[in-house]
Design a protein around this nucleic acid. Structure first.
Lengths: 120, 120
DNA sequence: TGACTATATGAGTATCTACTCATATAACGT
DNA sequence: ACGTTATATGAGTAGATACTCATATAGTCA
């Protein structure tokens, strides 16, 4: 069994055939970081550039740039140049459904833990 | 900015207050591995134990055990003992909605790439 | 052209992750 | 109790990730 690597699968675009599970895992890996989730929520209602998001979320410029790159590579964000800036917007609103369900599942899990505590 | 760590947040249950984004990221991180996605698909229609899943998915026993632990810790799977075995089932079917949307987004992104190639 | 702004990327680093092998634990049947 | 089966966990490792700082690139405007 070779180890699953997210970025290798990304950059290797050429070579390997990816399984359904790997394709899904790539999308989910791209979503699975609090700062990337914050970025998406910040872009929920509009278009923004790196220079607007950075101060809003208090993220270092180059770090933000790499987070944005990951989201674009997975097709979660779309970007285009406009003068000096690079604008970003969410490509597919269903991403927010994933985030909403994740929140529900997290909440439900927290409730289940409380129930276990109360039983004792 | 301190680095986001999945497992620290998991095991630290006691101490830190977690943001909404961290809670969502935890769920998504737990889902973001091809083998864990395969495990969930294998459990889609029923209850199974480690010893049934391992040969089916060709996963080494201890590796599978750790993957299952991650899914249980996040509340994605529920487990209970039955004699020697530990049975697992999916706690919340909405997990499959997340997987389905991820698949759709991945497919859509692949289609977009093909379009770009055809434009040129 | 030169100064300035916005973004991307190279290099270095601490930490994390998935994996394997070996061993421990727990529950069963005899 | 003893051997067997199912699962969990310790230790070690290769390689991946998020982050920072410094630098490169690219577009703007005087």
């Amino acid at each position: 069994m070779s180890r699953y690597s997210y970025s290798q699968l990304l950059t290797d675009g050429s070579a390997m055939k990816k399984t359904q599970e790997e394709l899904k895992a790539n999308i989910l890996t791209a979503l699975a970081h609090p700062n990337r989730i914050r970025i998406l929520e910040s872009l929920k209602n509009g278009v923004k550039c790196n220079c607007e998001i950075a101060p809003e979320l208090d993220l270092e410029q180059s770090n933000l740039s790499r987070h944005l790159k990951i989201l674009v590579q997975e097709g979660i964000l779309v970007s285009w140049k406009e003068g000096l800036r690079v604008n970003y917007k969410v490509a597919d609103k269903r991403i927010f459904d994933i985030l909403a369900i994740s929140g529900d599942v997290a909440r439900k899990q927290a409730e289940a833990r409380i129930e276990v505590l109360e039983e004792a």
